[in-house]
Write a protein that binds this DNA or RNA. Structure first.
Length: 293
RNA sequence: GGUCUGGUAGCUCAGGCAGUAGAGCAGGAGACUGAAAAUCUCCGUGUCGGGAGUGCAAAUCUCUCCUAGACCA
C-alpha cells in the first residue's frame, strides 16, 4: 500500500508522516522539490539529520544545490525507489508538497530523453509570435495553454521541434491512470486562517534557527543552480545579504510568498487528485490508525 | 497660535477643467505533463474624513469642523 500525504506547506505533513511511519513500520519517500537538495535544511523545513527517523527517508539530500533538477529526474528516481522498497516493505509513505512531482510519478506521465535544445532564439519573440509558431507545430497544445504563459509556450515549441512526438501527442498517448496498485492519497487542508498563522510562525522560527547563516554558508559553498535559487526563503535572504532590503522586509516578504504559494498548492491538490481530505495531520493519523486495526 | 500639504477599496496611492471612481499590492477563485517553492488566468460599490453652501448635478468649487504631517512662531 502506498500512502501519499500531500498538502500545503505548514499543514503538518512531516509530523503526520513520522507518526504514520512508526505505526506502519514504513519508509518515507520525500516528494518535495527543494528538500531534494543537500545543505538546504532550515528554509525547506527538512527533518533534522540528527533525528533517528532521518535514515528512514528516501529522496532527501540527494542533489547538490549547484545542480539543476526537474520532474523527469524526480519521476525516474521515485520509480526506482518504489521498485526497490516494495521488495522489503508492504507499506510505503510518500510525503510532500510538490504536486507535479507526485502526479508525474504516480500517473503514466512520459518524458522522452531530452535532446539538447537552445531556446534562446525564442527569447526575443513576442507572445503572439510564439503563439503563432506553436500553432504551426502543435496546434492542439494551444488548448491547454495561455498566450501569456511564455515559459510553457516555449517549452511546447521546444518539445515539438526536438522530440518525435509533440506535447499534445505525448499526452494523448497516455492513459491518465495511476500506475501503482493500492495507492491512497490523503490531503491535509487546514482552515486558511490557521494555515497562514502556522506559516507566519514557522518563518519566524526559521530565522531563530539560523536561516541567514545557512544561506550565507550556502553561497560560500555553491553557485546555486537555476532551480535551487528559486527556493522561497533563500532568494529573499540572498537579497537581504546584498542589502537590497531590511531584515524585517525580508521576513515579511518570505511570509507573504509562502502564503501565496500555499494557496496555489491547495488549488492543485484540490483539483488534480482524488484524495481524502483532512483538516489536520492529527485527524489523518487518527483515521488511518483506526482503519489499520 | 499661523501657513502649507494630505485625509479616496484591507494597504500604498491615481484621478478631480463638476456628470456618483481606478491601479498596484494584499485577499479570493482557477489553470497546471521536462524551472512547479516555478509560470500563468480571472475577480475591485468604496458613507471619495464629517457637516453646510452654490449648481440640474459635487469625490471634484466655496465655507466650516475634525484629523495626520511638515514648516513658521
Amino acid at each position: 500500500m502506498i500512502y501519499v500525504i500531500c498538502g500545503p506547506t505548514g499543514s503538518g505533513k512531516t509530523q503526520a508522516s513520522l507518526q504514520l511511519a512508526t505505526f506502519l513500520h514504513a519508509p518515507i519517500i520525500n516528494a518535495d522539490a527543494f528538500q531534494i537538495y543537500r545543505d538546504m535544511n532550515i528554509g525547506t523545513a527538512k527533518i533534522s539529520s540528527q533525528n533517528p527517523a532521518y535514515s528512514n527517508h528516501y529522496l532527501l539530500d540527494i542533489i547538490s544545490p549547484d545542480q539543476s533538477f526537474s520532474v523527469k529526474e524526480y519521476q525516474q528516481l521515485f520509480r526506482q525507489t518504489i521498485d526497490s522498497l516494495t521488495k522489503k516493505y508492504p507499506d510505503i509513505i510518500v510525503v510532500g508538497g510538490t504536486g507535479l512531482y507526485i502526479r508525474a510519478s504516480l500517473y503514466d506521465y512520459m518524458f522522452e530523453e531530452r535532446e539538447p535544445d537552445d531556446t534562446s532564439d525564442l527569447d526575443n519573440l513576442s507572445n503572439q509570435e510564439l503563439w503563432d509558431l506553436l500553432k504551426s507545430l502543435d496546434e492542439k497544445s494551444l488548448l491547454s495553454l495561455h498566450p501569456n504563459n511564455r515559459k510553457r509556450v516555449i517549452r511546447a515549441i521546444s518539445i515539438a521541434r526536438t522530440h518525435l512526438q509533440n506535447k499534445s501527442e505525448n499526452i494523448q498517448r497516455q492513459e491518465h491512470k495511476i500506475i501503482y496498485p493500492n495507492v491512497s492519497i490523503y490531503f491535509i487542508n487546514p482552515p486558511r486562517e490557521k494555515l497562514y498563522d502556522n506559516i507566519n510562525k514557522r518563518v519566524d522560527e526559521m530565522f531563530n534557527l539560523g536561516l541567514v547563516k545557512e544561506v550565507n554558508d550556502l553561497l560560500i559553498k555553491y553557485h546555486l543552480s537555476l532551480t535551487a535559487s528559486q527556493a522561497i526563503g533563500y532568494k529573499e535572504v540572498i537579497d537581504y545579504l546584498s542589502h537590497k532590503m531590511s531584515l524585517n522586509e525580508c521576513q515579511e516578504l518570505i511570509k507573504q510568498r509562502t502564503r501565496n504559494y500555499a494557496k496555489r498548492q491547495v488549488t492543485f491538490f484540490k483539483h488534480q487528485f482524488n484524495s481524502q481530505e483532512f483538516i489536520s495531520g492529527d485527524e489523518l493519523v487518527k483515521v488511518i490508525m483506526e482503519d489499520g486495526k
